[in-house]
Write a protein that binds this DNA or RNA. Sequence first.
DNA 1: GAATTCAAAATTGTATACAGTTTGGAATTC
DNA 2: GAATTCCAAACTGTATACAATTTTGAATTC
Lengths: 231, 231
Amino acid sequence: MAKRESNVDRVYEALRRMAADFAFKPDQRLNESALSEVLGASRTPLREALNRLVAEGFLTFQINRGFFCRPLTPSYILDLYEARVAIECEALRIACQRAPEADITAFSAYLDRMEPEYESATELEELLTLDESFHNRLVQLSGNSELQRMLKNLNGRIRYIRLIDLKRMRDQAEGRAPGDVSAHRLVLQGLVARDVEVATRALRNHIEKRREEATEAVRIAFSQLYVPDED
Amino acid sequence: MAKRESNVDRVYEALRRMAADFAFKPDQRLNESALSEVLGASRTPLREALNRLVAEGFLTFQINRGFFCRPLTPSYILDLYEARVAIECEALRIACQRAPEADITAFSAYLDRMEPEYESATELEELLTLDESFHNRLVQLSGNSELQRMLKNLNGRIRYIRLIDLKRMRDQAEGRAPGDVSAHRLVLQGLVARDVEVATRALRNHIEKRREEATEAVRIAFSQLYVPDED
DNA sequence: GAATTCAAAATTGTATACAGTTTGGAATTC
DNA sequence: GAATTCCAAACTGTATACAATTTTGAATTC
């Protein structure tokens, strides 16, 4: 039987996970020999995977100097969240206009089913996966593969920003509980009523609020660690 | 002095240009040895470039079978144009809200300066470059690098769809002249007034109209050449 | 003649070698 | 001691070789 997944795919996924889990410091140069040993592949497939990550914006590349972990700056975080608003709100608009009634019903049922898990989730990763899942499914309702691809890419890059945010929320427990699904419910209500304006306004507010929290969380978390070059 | 551009970059650009210029037939398998000879590089940097193009959605990849030119289907074209609406309308919204007055004035002057060129452009490529330039500059006004990156990617993949569209328009000269900037003027008016609703409505209409034309043009152009797998 | 088998040819997958470049630090200069 | 030079070590860039897999097409079977 033929293999299903290529070695480059495997290495790519491993690198993406490492990036999301803080394995690389911002602006850190990635040593290809060391990485290839850790990942159990030679430099040839490793570099193919690294090139994919550059194309997707996870890493940067400098000729004759290699691949670097992309640093987190406030303006970069702003850009990523604004792009999420663009993708998700347009997907929601499309979904309001043409998603089959059955899909919306299923989405609603999904949120009901997940609510207890949200409330009881203890692991941050678990909570984050649940939240990402809501947004992914929302964009799926649009039926647009490009919007799905773009969201997946953004989520991959935003993931560790959100982990920092959730960590802070849990530590402080200020106001909103981490597992609060009320914002998601508001979006759903608009979608069920197929009211583009109400739905997108709710979603936009939700994402922008999260952005503000996340920016602040990152600022606090990193302010004592290093000073990234901002421009 | 150090080199500025890497070999992989050069190969990548060459491949992208080839893809945009119909050098590869849809679903055609790309022969690595042949390509590496044409491009004057060994398979190692070639494959790195090909992996970037896969990550960006220009090509597809199958394990042990190599890289393939992505086929054009109506639903793929719809997805790309919808994604453009998402990116450009949100960028325009942001620009309405916070682009410096000076940048908007400069943008307006740019459109005035370009109008004669639009009218007189004879080469399709020239016309297309002018049109892409308008949209790129619009998104630049948002100051968001991620939106710019996403638009650049979409434009790269949409480019040859638009060439087909422009070709048909020129051949038929039905109704609208190819170099019509009135739709762009409407968008600009909304932006100058900083009226998000007016501006985004004009832009959305413009892109969606172009999508309809392009879909039809591709349908006609390809209907006798081959039948792509649609699903 | 359509379907099947199978081996040769073509093609992809990747480890490795080595050339070219950058980096780090010791030696030197001021 | 700070700045500069320079060389060795480390690292990246890529051509190449060869293993693994797929494709092709001729031979065979029904």
